[in-house]
């Protein structure tokens, strides 16, 4: 419990005190950082919005089930490999359309400050002018490795 203080005033009201909190404001530098972070998070959000099967993967790996029928496992591994190869091909083609989600394409298609800052944030990935990529790591082979890959990436 805070220490009891002597009575200080018989004029100031609760409303007056609460109005003081209106003055607690951040500095202009804060807003610059805020904008940078917002654009970065916006980019991350759209990049992380992967294909619809991602949700199924997450549900599967969070469920604790440690086995999967062999034909399905084989199919999944092949799908992952082909997805990785497809992504690599798209990266090599150096086309902005390489980004998968429609929402992200909409962001990139617009010549606005969002896009510019998003591009700046992404430029460390691949600094090519007007070219933005999502980097997909190589898919490790093996059930445990695949599980680890999906958990770490998604």
């Amino acid at each position: 419990m805070p220490k009891k203080k002597p009575s200080l005033s018989n004029q100031v009201t609760l409303e007056d005190l609460l109005k003081l909190k209106r003055h607690e404001k951040p500095t202009p530098e804060f807003w610059q950082q805020f904008d940078r972070d917002l654009h970065k998070k916006t980019l991350q959000t759209f990049v992380q919005q992967g294909p619809s099967w991602r949700g199924a993967w997450q549900a599967y790996f969070k469920s604790g089930i440690k086995w999967v029928p062999a034909p399905i496992a084989a199919l999944l591994v092949l799908t992952m490999i082909s997805f990785g190869a497809h992504t690599s091909t798209q990266m090599a083609s150096q086309q902005p359309e390489a980004i998968g989600t429609p929402s992200f394409q909409a962001v990139l298609a617009s010549k606005d400050t969002y896009t510019q800052v998003l591009a700046q944030n992404a430029s460390h990935i691949n600094p090519g002018e007007n070219t933005y990529y999502v980097v997909s790591p190589a898919v490790p082979i093996g059930a445990n490795a695949l599980s680890g890959y999906m958990s770490s990436v998604y």
Binding site: P6, L8, S9, N10, Q11, L14, D16, L17, L18
Partner: peptide, 14 residues
């Protein structure tokens, strides 16, 4: 809420 706050901040207010 204001009753609660008035009790807590009684040293500062009327």
């Amino acid at each position: 809420a204001k009753q609660q706050l008035q009790a807590y901040l009684k040293d500062y207010i009327q």
